[in-house]
Amino acid sequence: MSGFYEVFEVFSRKSDTAPLQHQFSLLAPNHEIALVMAQENFMRREPVSDIWVVKRSDIRQMKEEEKDALKRLDNKDYRTTKGYGYLKKKWRQYEQEMFDEKEILSWKGEIQR
């Protein structure tokens, strides 16, 4: 019996635009039986748009040297929105320094003239 069954990973989508999500693993002798088992075990529980069944041995993980190529350069912060998060605080400080109470009250006299 050893070697007859293979491990398959089951992924699904709730709608055509939703991302794939891993649901569970199962043992089956081939792809066709694995798909039937996935449908029987999963689709009757909740509505899905699509099911993917993949043999675990066909899934390849990146090696460490391949992951290094994905790292961003240090000087690319301007490409992410977090690089501008400080502006709101800076603007608030600028407004508080510029519009103090004396200045605002002085406008009243200028408007009446």
Results as ranks from 00 to 15, higher is better:
Ser2Glu: 15
Gly3Ala: 13
Gly3Thr: 06
Gly3Tyr: 06
Phe4Arg: 13
Phe4Ala: 11
Tyr5Ser: 08
Glu6Lys: 09
Phe11Met: 06
Phe11Thr: 00
Ser12Gly: 08
Arg13Trp: 02
Arg13Cys: 13
Arg13Met: 14
Arg13Ile: 03
Asp16Ser: 09
Thr17Gly: 03
Thr17Gln: 12
Ala18Thr: 09
Ala18Val: 04
Pro19Tyr: 01
Pro19Val: 07
Pro19Gly: 06
Leu20Glu: 15
His22Val: 04
Phe24His: 05
Phe24Leu: 13
Phe24Thr: 13
Ser25His: 03
Leu26Lys: 02
Leu26Tyr: 02
Leu27His: 05
Leu27Glu: 08
His31Ser: 11
His31Ala: 12
Glu32Ser: 05
Ile33Glu: 13
Ile33Phe: 05
Ala34Trp: 01
Leu35Pro: 01
Leu35Val: 11
Val36Met: 12
Met37Lys: 10
Met37Glu: 15
Gln39Arg: 05
Gln39Pro: 00
Gln39Ser: 06
Asn41His: 04
Asn41Val: 02
Phe42Pro: 01
Met43Cys: 10
Arg44Thr: 15
Arg45Val: 10
Arg45His: 12
Glu46Cys: 02
Glu46Leu: 07
Glu46Val: 03
Glu46Ile: 05
Pro47Gln: 10
Val48Thr: 09
Val48Arg: 05
Val48Gly: 03
Ser49Leu: 00
Asp50Thr: 07
Asp50Ile: 00
Asp50Asn: 05
Ile51Cys: 06
Trp52Lys: 08
Val53Asp: 01
Val53Gln: 01
Lys55Pro: 04
Lys55Met: 13
Lys55Glu: 13
Arg56Gly: 05
Ser57Arg: 11
Asp58Lys: 01
Arg60Asn: 14
Arg60Ser: 15
Arg60Met: 14
Met62Ile: 05
Lys63Trp: 04
Lys63Asp: 14
Glu64Lys: 04
Glu64Met: 03
Glu64Pro: 03
Glu65Trp: 02
Glu66His: 01
Glu66Gly: 00
Glu66Trp: 00
Glu66Tyr: 00
Asp68His: 06
Ala69Glu: 15
Leu70Ser: 03
Leu70His: 04
Leu70Lys: 05
Leu70Arg: 05
Lys71Thr: 09
Lys71Asn: 12
Lys71Cys: 04
Lys71Gly: 03
Arg72Pro: 10
Arg72Leu: 12
Leu73Arg: 11
Leu73Gly: 08
Asp74Pro: 07
Asn75Ala: 07
Lys76Cys: 09
Lys76Gly: 04
Lys76Arg: 10
Asp77Trp: 03
Tyr78Val: 09
Tyr78Asn: 11
Tyr78His: 12
Arg79Asp: 13
Thr80Ser: 11
Thr80Ile: 09
Thr81Ala: 09
Lys82Ile: 09
Tyr84Ser: 08
Tyr84Val: 10
Gly85Asn: 10
Leu87Cys: 03
Leu87Phe: 01
Leu87Asp: 00
Lys88Cys: 03
Lys88Met: 06
Lys89Ser: 13
Lys89Thr: 08
Lys90Gln: 12
Trp91Asn: 06
Trp91Lys: 06
Arg92Glu: 15
Gln93Asp: 11
Tyr94Ile: 07
Glu97Pro: 00
Met98Gly: 00
Met98Lys: 03
Phe99Glu: 12
Phe99Trp: 14
Phe99Tyr: 14
Asp100Val: 07
Glu101Gln: 12
Lys102Phe: 12
Ile104Val: 15
Ser106Arg: 11
Trp107Phe: 15
Trp107Gly: 12
Lys108Asp: 13
Lys108Trp: 09
Lys108Gln: 14
Gly109Cys: 00
Gly109Thr: 11
Glu110His: 02
Glu110Pro: 00
Ile111Gln: 09
Gln112Met: 08
Gln112Leu: 11
